[in-house]
Design a binder for these strands. Sequence first.
RNA 1: GCCCGAGUAGCUCAGGGGAUAGAGCAACUGCCUCCUAAGCAGUAGGUCGCAGGUUCGAAUCCUGCCUCGGGCGCCA
Length: 588
Amino acid sequence: MSVVTHLGHLVGSAFADIGLDPSFGAVVPSQRPELAQFQCNGALAAAKSAGRPPHDIATDVIGRLSAEPTIGKVDIAGPGFINLTVTDDTLAAALEAMHSDDRLGIPVVDDPLTVVVDYAGPNVAKAMHVGHLRATIIGDSLARIMDVLGHRVIRDPHFGDWGFQMGLLIAELEDRHPDWPYFEDGAAGSYPEESPVTLDDLQEIYPHAAEKARQDESFATRAREATVQLQAGHPGHTALWRHMKGVSEQSQRADFSELGVEFDVWYGESDVHDRIGPMVDRLLESGVAEESEGALIVRVASEDDNREVPPLILTASSGGYLYSTTDLATIESRVRDLDADLVLYVVDNRQTDHFVQVFRAARLGGIAPESLRLEHIGFGTMNGGDGKPFRTRAGGVVRLSDLIDMVRTAAKERLDDAELAADYPEHEREAISAMVGLAALKFGDLINNRSSDYILDLDRFTSFEGKTGPYLQYAAVRMGSILRRAAAEGLVPGAIEPPGPDAERGLMLELAMLPEVVLRAAELRAPNHIADHAFTLAGRFNRFYDVCHILSETDETRRASWLGLVETCAASLRLLLSMLGIEVPERM
RNA sequence: GCCCGAGUAGCUCAGGGGAUAGAGCAACUGCCUCCUAAGCAGUAGGUCGCAGGUUCGAAUCCUGCCUCGGGCGCCA
């Protein structure tokens, strides 16, 4: 049991003893480290309902705690804060328990859930760009956090390959290349093996076609018709669609691979196509869906809405399926095929309304049972220095692969300029640069609160000093280096002893917070709590490293204890970094 | 117009109804004969957008206002 949980139980039962709710005993790290290690604010909170002054309650509570052997010091401060400090023996025992536990004290959840994490959101005709970065990094991190806690995690990028955008592309290609064989109606002809278009072509074509559809109603109509034809299985359109899908997916998989992000499944919107017809029929029969202005809609407004919630468009008046359609069918698939208990949609905040509609429609239509939890995990926009979405100087969208190159190159320059790793082989320097660059990119994102917008400042991201990914890698490398050297000298880590210097105690206290941090990050779906704790932990270690020279320590018991502490710290930091999707080089 | 989010140090951002609001960067001062200085220690820097309210206690909850961003039926 972790230290704060242990203290929480002790203080909670003291509250229970005097007839108050044990939840008042919740213990948190102290805000005034010079006064105590932990604190409980429950006496203040309980005062009103108990009808007693907080100081009196606190006095009663600490009276029941003073005999507790694990508590070194307990006193009242201010109007009724209960300040707690554990004995050094208790702290050492807690750390040794972590040290000897493969899970570092992190519990496995009692009721593992099947969690689908829907993130990244690649689309046909779009290379991954900076706009996809947050969704990818945050989703990947959340999946890793849930996995650590013992949930069954299914990562699905939910490839966007079945909406109106397909019709736009097909219609535009038909305009440009009427001689291509894909546009004939009727029986399947023979189509080329090779894609006639590259992803770069599609990148150029798509915005052009989207703009054209806004200007030219007849073109928009043809695009809608092409969408319907594709969705109805038109052989030529299908062949062309496969090409477009193929070149897009190939590029995107390469980008994910560069990012170190993997998926368990790679389903697209089109994969639920066969479900859509029956689903729509059912929704119509049950009266959940209705016809309106030629389209099929589901009215999802509720009486207690404080605003107008527009209906979900189930199918367009052209008969085409939209992403609302596929999203609903995908929920059905995740329930029936994947047996999901929880679906996390890691999609930016601008789509909040869409998910409100989809989730409500899924409930109304009986697609999502009561037991299924559906959550939109929204996040803010990544902006440039001007507060507008991040662009190149020329105003273009920055490709993800270019961004990765930038941070990798900056890391390489950092090695060269500072004459670091000068004697390492070139291929290792390249590998280090890649890991450091990615760490900077991922940490720089995940340290932010997910739901707020933030500014991507490349200079800051590539400085690699201070609160950055490389700072954490550097701390982890130092730990690894000490352990390696110790092993080479035949020094063996031992049981963790009570701390001596404050720097050591501070490190131990921070380490002991690991289980709570992971649980809270998972509950709040908030990787920044992991990132923040990792940074604090690395800082505490660097301080300890500065004050305590481990390998030259002559007291053998103490040296072995310190090595044990470094082992625990290294394992914790590596685990934390792995939950952020950050790798650590052997040396750097 | 309605709805959602944001406004905290020069800059970028944390902040769980609680004590004296924190970090990184930038600025300034120190620390490499010693386990990697991508490090450590220190100094300075604040009407938490504004005005009310609830509370023993508000950056945090409520109301109004200001500024900025986003969304608002057949794009995703």
